[in-house]
Design a protein around this nucleic acid. Structure first.
Length: 314
DNA sequence: TTGTGTTTTATTGCCTCC
DNA sequence: GGAGGCAATAAAACACAA
C-alpha cells in the first residue's frame, strides 16, 4: 500500500480497482483528506460521503438528487435511506448535476488546488479525494481526446501534402517527357542541318550558349536511351544522398543530376525543396500504416489555442 | 434477459517537485 | 519524505443489440 493512500481491508490485492462489495470499508480514504474532512463540512458523510445520491430508492436507473442539499437540512432521513447507507458499499456514479458542476469547474481551471478541492467537495457533498480523482480522470479523458484531435489534424495534413506531392510527381513526369520530346526535335534538327551545313552549332540552332545545352541535353553523339539512362540511373555516382529518403533509387521523379545543372548549390537546394516540398515540409518516410498517435502534441506544432487548458506539457 | 462493449469511478505504483 | 500528478488497470455501472 502506498504511503499516502489507505486502501480498504489492507489493500494488498495488487493492481487497481479490486473492490468487492464485501471489502468496502475505508476505501478511498486518503489519510490527509480524511483528516481534512472530519467535521469540516456540513456535507461530510464520513466514509459514506462517496455516495452520489443516485441509485437511491433502490433504483437501478440513475436518479438525480440535488447535491446542494446538506444533511443538516435533511430533516427526515428516512429509514430507506438509512438502509441504503448500510448496504455494502458500491461504486456509484456522480449525479448529472454534480458532473455538470465539476465540468464547469474543470473548464475554469483543470488543476485543483487544495482549497478549491475542499470547497468543491463541500459544495458537492463529496470527499475531496473523490473530487481529486474526478479531476484526474477528467484530465486523462481530455488528454485522450486531444490526442485524437492531434492525430486527425496530422492525418489530414499528411493527406494534403501527399496529394501535393503526387501532383508534383505527375507534373515532373510530364515535364520530363516534354524535355525528351524537345531533345528529339533538337537532335533531328541538328542532324538535318549537319547534313547541309557541318559547321553549324547548337548555339546557332537554339540561340543559347553551348554550355547551357550541354548541361541538360545529351550530346548529339549520345543516343537517347543513354541520355535517359543517365537521367534516371540513381545508382550513378551523381545520386544525391541527401535526397535518399525522399526519392528512392530508381524513382523516376529524379530528373536532373546536380552536376548537370547550371544552378548553384543553394539554388539547387531551393529548387529541390520547392519541387519536393512546396510548403517547406520535409516529408517523413512514408508509412502506409499510420504510426502510433503522438505522445506529445507539443512536438507537432499545434497552436496554443488548440490546447485550451494550457497543461499540455507532456 | 443476457452477453458484450463502453464509460466512469477508484486503486496502485512510480515519478517529480519542494 | 510528503504531496500531488500521471499511466495503467480493475471493476462497477451503464448502454444496447440480439
Amino acid at each position: 500500500m502506498a504511503d499516502r493512500r489507505m486502501a480498504y481491508g489492507g489493500g494488498a490485492d495488487g493492481g487497481g480497482g479490486g473492490s468487492s462489495a464485501s471489502t468496502f470499508l475505508l476505501q478511498n480514504q486518503r489519510i490527509p483528506d480524511s483528516l481534512f474532512f472530519s467535521g469540516s463540512s456540513p456535507n461530510f458523510l464520513g466514509s459514506r460521503s462517496m455516495v452520489s445520491f443516485e441509485d437511491f430508492n433502490n433504483g437501478c436507473k440513475r436518479q438525480e438528487r440535488p447535491f446542494f442539499r446538506s444533511f443538516d437540512q435533511e430533516e427526515n432521513v428516512d429509514e430507506e435511506y438509512d438502509e441504503y447507507l448500510h448496504q455494502p458499499e458500491k461504486k456509484r456514479r456522480l449525479s448529472a448535476d454534480q458532473v455538470q458542476f465539476l465540468e464547469k469547474s474543470f473548464v475554469e481551471e483543470n488543476k485543483l488546488e487544495p482549497e478549491r478541492k475542499v470547497q468543491l467537495a463541500k459544495d458537492l457533498g463529496l470527499q475531496p479525494r473523490q473530487v481529486a480523482i474526478w479531476f484526474q480522470n477528467r484530465r486523462a479523458r481530455w488528454k485522450t481526446k486531444q490526442l485524437e484531435k492531434d492525430y486527425g489534424a496530422l492525418e489530414s495534413s499528411y493527406n494534403s501534402l501527399k496529394a501535393d506531392y503526387d501532383c508534383l510527381l505527375k507534373e515532373t513526369e510530364k515535364l520530363k517527357s516534354e524535355v525528351l520530346h524537345l531533345t528529339d526535335k533538337v537532335v533531328l534538327k541538328q542532324k538535318h542541318k549537319g547534313n547541309t551545313d557541318p559547321s553549324d552549332s547548337n548555339e546557332q540552332l537554339l540561340g543559347q550558349p553551348q554550355a547551357s545545352i550541354d548541361s541538360g541535353m545529351p550530346s548529339n553523339q549520345e543516343d537517347h536511351s543513354s541520355a535517359k539512362s543517365d537521367v534516371l540511373d540513381s545508382d550513378s555516382p551523381h545520386y544525391v544522398e541527401g535526397h535518399s529518403s525522399l526519392i528512392e533509387p530508381g524513382d523516376s521523379s529524379y530528373v536532373l543530376e546536380p552536376e548537370q545543372s547550371d544552378l548553384s548549390q543553394d539554388e539547387e537546394d531551393n529548387l529541390s525543396k520547392n519541387l519536393l516540398a512546396p510548403t517547406g515540409y520535409v516529408f517523413p518516410k512514408v508509412e502506409h500504416d499510420y504510426p502510433n498517435p503522438p505522445t506529445n502534441s507539443c512536438y507537432f506544432g499545434f497552436t496554443v489555442e488548440e490546447q485550451p487548458f494550457g497543461f499540455w506539457s507532456y
